[in-house]
């Protein structure tokens, strides 16, 4: 009885393991289409860094000069990565992203009062004339 159990166990294990080799079943060895490539991963990191910078600015950890400088630098990096992606893929999606990133670069400062986008470095809103002071968070209570 024990012997029979042992035989079944061994046979099952051997059969299960050798089946792919004997019958030529292959497992994929390359990364799949829906996974990020190195370039895509870099793009994501850059975009996350942009988000972080925005957050740090909004919560008063970056002052306006640092923030604008950092944002310009990050946007340029993002653009470079996107162009690299375009070269490798050439899809419409990437085109759209580049356009959007360019737009982001051009239209930087959003007016708190009327939500109008103003070019980087503007001191006053071009639409309603409100002062575009760095969004001062009401610091600590």
């Amino acid at each position: 009885m024990a012997l029979l159990g042992a035989l079944i166990l061994v046979a099952a294990v051997v059969g299960f393991i050798l089946q792919p080799v004997l019958q030529g079943h292959w497992a994929s060895l390359r990364h799949q289409d829906d996974e990020m490539t190195e370039a895509e991963a870099r793009r994501r990191v850059t975009l996350l860094a942009l988000r972080d910078a925005e957050y740090d600015f909004a919560t008063g950890k970056l002052d306006v000069d640092d923030y604008t400088a950092l944002k310009r630098q990050l946007s340029a990096e993002a653009l470079a990565v996107l162009q690299e992606l375009e070269a490798s893929e050439g899809s419409d999606l990437v085109e759209a992203e580049i356009a959007a990133a360019r737009k982001e670069l051009e239209e930087e400062v959003r007016c708190d009062t009327c939500r109008h986008h103003n070019p980087t470095g503007s001191r006053f809103c071009g639409a309603c004339g409100a002062a575009l002071v760095p969004q001062e968070t009401a610091g600590a209570p």
């Binding site: 860094a49 740090d56 000069d65």
Partner: peptide, 20 residues
């Protein structure tokens, strides 16, 4: 948590650390 990634200016730090 109070320091920004990449760079933080001393002025902001002073402001952010005063209360804590």
């Amino acid at each position: 948590p109070v320091i920004a990634w990449r760079r933080a200016s001393a002025r902001n730090l002073k402001k952010n650390f005063l209360w804590p």
